[in-house]
Design a protein around this nucleic acid. Structure first.
Lengths: 323, 323
DNA sequence: ATGAAAGCGCTAACAA
DNA sequence: TTGTTAGCGCTTTCAT
């Protein structure tokens, strides 16, 4: 219980260790040109005084905080918590704190998030940007090390980590076909800049069998009804994501039909609840935790001075009851 | 496209507006003693130059960042994303960025989060602390404005927002009883510092009808089996949370029984998937988004100089198919 | 109502 | 290998 709440500064440590401020700085930042003996002594003094460097003062000199930003549309959308968990774990392992910006996929909110990231002097940023255009993203990438998720690089300097939607979609369609479904329809998500799944679906299923709806359970129910109204012969349904697929399964049940019997439904993402439903949802699994981890890994390598990388994560199909 | 990437500082604004640095500071921080005319002129200049004050420099003077911390055990646990969303929205409305600390309810991780919060000079903190003891929490509360969630105040200076577990539990038990179930059992969560639900259950159901398990789906399945093995006559099951309840429903199904028929299951929290299951889960609903919002509101009032508040949110029962 | 001076705690550049 | 010097950009006295 020794006294007060005054801050222990680098000068206190320097004085106590009998060295200069600079030497303390060197010791704690693992800079070269310091003897092992002094280094150890200084570190011990730091420990002893429970000295914690001021993030503000440090940031003021370096213009970089020990913080990374995570930009995503909606943490309440069950896809993102798992990704966020991967990001948090990997960031914590690197000693980075994570600031989360929730945007609702709104262009203004994404712009504002970018501004906040730059203003805060974030060490880097990871983003699921759905509304911002490439020039804006490239501009952000010029101001802060940036890794974008599930989107093409807007600029060579911007790193990317993507999940392979095309392969995933083919996996889903091939499975439906292998189960004997010849007439397929798709429930697309009415979102910007996510054409890959629809395009891949149309490659093997040309025609007018795609209905778009908000990527929610309610959207899925409505979309399924309108799809079947338009094309009653459809027996295989591929959905943009699990939420839509779940809505479809529910709409089917309300109509007295059960997914997995004559009609099949395949979702995308494999969110937690997919396995818990009845029937459990057949879906394209993407490793969301791994995506989060990888995003941080790629950002970390960027921070360590490596050039921007571009990684792709492979999806796999999880066959359950619904198809 | 005028030139470079040099920072616009307060001095640039001062020069451009023909005033001193102080006056700029006064204008942007709404301090008194400044004429309306100068104020407007300075603000216009700020706009024009797109000046953004350095968070580091400001923090250095004030020792407070424009950041709040959110400490929670696991963002991937479906209870928390909804809370987090409420926190993000309310914080954004106040111009605060949110740093998330994921702890896994581990004491060391919670301690470390507290340290990080203090070091970062967070304006305030919101926390679901499960492992930290009251003295540690009180100590943290002395260093930063703190609001703890779902936990008694460890100290008068620490604000709280709680959901009323006791009432929620009584709601659940009364419902089961009103449905004719006389022998009730409980699936408790094997977690620290969350005795309210078990205690409230035991108030009306004394005896040895409580089984504890990790608050997960797998835990729920196992716990249900051991509960029924021990007390085969039980027909009404109350679970610590929805995850346990879902596991129970699944274990029942695996045993050829269906929740909602002869045996009833009531969960707690009303996570998103509760409504989507088959049978849909009867559960005690707590408004998670509102909890998040309220946590920020209470923190905000604290930051505005008001004393620590203590709020309680009322739960309500949502009757669906499982009971 | 406005300005001048001082300094928050740190690190980069240079000297020794 | 170590120390000295000089700010980073802002707000808080205090003076005017």
């Amino acid at each position: 219980m020794s006294g007060g709440s005054v801050r222990v500064t680098i000068d206190d440590v320097a004085r106590a260790a009998g060295v200069s401020r600079q030497t303390v700085s060197r010791a704690m930042n693992d800079k070269g040109d310091i003897s092992e003996a002094t280094r150890r002594r200084v570190l011990a003094t730091i420990e002893e005084l429970d000295y914690r460097p001021s993030a503000f003062a440090r940031g003021m000199r370096t213009q970089r905080a020990g913080t990374v930003a995570l930009v995503l549309p909606d943490i309440a959308n069950p896809f993102f918590p798992a990704v966020a968990r991967g990001v948090f774990d990997a960031a914590a392992a690197r000693g980075l704190a994570v600031v989360v910006h929730n945007t609702d996929a709104d262009a203004d909110a994404e712009t504002e998030a970018g501004r906040a990231i730059v203003d805060a002097g974030a060490a880097g940023a990871i983003g699921f940007f759905e509304a911002l255009d490439d020039p804006a993203l490239a501009a952000l990438g010029r101001r802060v090390p940036l890794v974008v998720a599930d989107r093409p690089a807007p600029d060579p300097s911007v790193a990317t980590v993507r999940t392979d939607f095309r392969t995933g979609t083919h996996l889903a369609c091939e499975h439906l076909i292998s189960r004997g479904h010849t007439r397929l329809g798709m429930l697309d998500g009415a979102v910007q800049n996510k054409p890959e799944r629809r395009q891949a679906f149309l490659e093997t299923n040309p025609g007018d069998h795609v209905v778009a709806a908000p990527p929610t359970v309610a959207g899925g129910a409505a979309a399924l009804r309108s799809l079947l109204a338009r094309h009653p012969a459809i027996t295989g349904v591929f959905a943009f994501n699990d939420l839509l697929a779940i809505g479809a399964v529910q709409a089917l049940r309300a109509a007295g039909r059960r997914a997995g019997d004559q009609i099949a439904v395949v979702g995308y993402d494999d969110i937690t609840m997919a396995a818990l439903l009845d029937p459990p949802l057949t879906t394209v699994h993407t490793d969301k935790y791994e995506l989060g981890r990888t995003l941080v890994e790629v950002l970390g390598r960027r921070l360590d001075g490596h050039p921007a990388e571009h990684r792709t994560l492979a999806p796999r199909l999880v066959v359950r009851g619904s198809a």
